[in-house]
Every structure is written in C-alpha cells, then in structure tokens.
Amino acid sequence: MENAIYVKDLVREYDVAKSREKGGKSVLQALKGISFEVNKGEIFGLLGPNGAGKTTTIKILTTMLTSTSGEARVLGYDVNRHEKELRNHINFIFGGERGLYWRLSARDNLMYFSDLYRLDRKTRTKRVPELLEMVGLADRADEKVERYSKGMKQRLQIARGLINDPKVVFLDEPTLGLDPIGARELKGIIKELKSLDKTILLTTHYMLEADELCDRIAIIDKGEIKALDTPDKLKKLNANMSVIEVTTIGISGQAIEELKLVNGVQLVNVQDMDQQQQLQIHCESPSMVVQGVLGVLSQFKVIDMCIREATLEDAYVKLVEGKE
C-alpha cells in the first residue's frame, strides 16, 4: 500500500539576517535531512522541544513552504511541484487562536472557507452544520469569534480544517493553551478523526498527549530525528531503566556535575520549580547507584525521593538532552 506521507532526506534552510556588525546573512538549517513515512489511517506524532523543526516540517508538507532539498510526498504528490493537485486533499490546523476571521461568526467563517475549497452549495449546507455539531459549537455558531474562549476557537479551527473532508490532516500543537478538560475534548475529536479513516500528522511537546494519541512517534530535535517507533517500543528503549527522582532545595551546579560522575548514572535531568529542584537520575540498577547519589546529596536538603520505572517522557528527555 502506498504511504500517505513520504519524507526522505528533507532539508530546509532559512536565511536569517545577522546583526549589522557581523554583516551579511547567515543560513539556519531548521531541518537537517529528516526521513519518515506515515501509513494511511495512522496517527503519527512529531514530538520535540521548541525550535526542533516541527512546524517547519508541517509547513513544507502543507505546501506553504518549499524544501531546500530532499523529497516529500503527500498522497503521492510531490509537495514542491504538485501543490495545486495536493491542496484539495489535505488540510491543516494550527494551535492557538490565529487563522480565523475574528469579526465573523463561526458559521460565516466555515461558509467562507467552504468557498475557498470550492464546495458546492449542497455539500456546504450539509457539512457546515455537521462540523459545528461535531466540535460542539452548534448552539453558539452565530456569535462572533472574537467573543469565543480559546477552547472554542480551537474547536472552530478543527471544524475549519475538516471543511474539505481532507484525507490527510496536519495538526500543529492542537492543544496549545487549552485547559485539561479542553485538551481532553480535543483529543476525543482527534480520535474520532482516526475512526473516520483520516491520516493524521500531529506535533506536540507533551509526551502524554503523544503517548495517548499516536500510533507511532518520531522524536525530533534540532532538525534531526532522534528516534522513531511506536510509543510502547520507545518506552522499551528504556526497558531496564529506572529513574531516581529527588526533590531538593538549593543544590549547586557542582553537585550536579558530581552526580553525573557517580558510577552507574547515565543522565541527570534538572528541573527548577521555584526554590526547589527536581532531579531525574537515569540509571539501570538504582539499588547500586542510590548510595553514591546520597553521598553527593548529603550536604543538601532532600525533600522527597523515589525510584520508578522509566516512562516515555524519560525516553524523550534522554534522547533530546542526553547526547550533547
């Protein structure tokens, strides 16, 4: 079976103007030759930190940008050359509140976008109310978008992105800025899309979201794919790994360096939370390591400490921050 999305050695460079003194322009390589394939009907996740190149990838695949080199096909169409044919069959949803006409009502937005996609009157009069119903905006469809909450705008974006009944849907951080309930509703809608047999490529930097939704995940960082597999297999990258989680107050940078040198410690990840720091110490056999760790920590106040199995999030942290 033909893939829905095929990406091979994709490179994208941006010209960025440097400061005056340095003079001239320089090139920023946002994608350094990534390759992946997405099967039909699959939910595929691009997971990565800020600036990883997720949005850039989506913009290339949705024909907003061209690639600098490499190959990219969606539904068999070359995105650089056959954009006109492709555009009818895909759509995209960007997280956040932009991309809608705020001064129009939800219904008018959808009406206009259905003209943009050249739907005939019959399809339009049927589909617009259906979509409004699906995203739960039917009873407020005639209010102006500027009065909507973030969650409502986000759901309207989804409806907009489905207006042409696309075969492939691209979602860029769809749950951006939503509260947990809003995010859950949205994830419900995304699962519903899968049941409608659509291929979905979504980006996110929330592991849990990726874990919950995606059939396969590519972890991307600084324009490179670090790992690509099912969530379960990615978790198994860390199969025999454990994490010692320590919450301390006022730990020094030097102590953290010392922790990294403790025998058996593979990685130390530090997260600042107010005055506290949470350390995640990755290792294979915590019982052997814990002694050395406590030795280093003896001069600092330890509030909490636990040992747990590695999760997908740990795998992600390890891939993105581990090898420097």
């Binding site: 907003m64 009818n88 976008f113 943009l116 996609y117 050249r118």
Partner: peptide, 18 residues
Amino acid sequence: YMGTLEMIFTAPGGFRNI
C-alpha cells in the same frame, strides 16, 4: 497577522481569485 494569509494562499480556490 491574523494567520489567515497562509490559509488563503494554500486554498484550492486560488489565491489570485481571492
């Protein structure tokens, strides 16, 4: 600035018509 330029640009209806 509204973020709709990308959408009308990629609309199959044709940016020039819009």
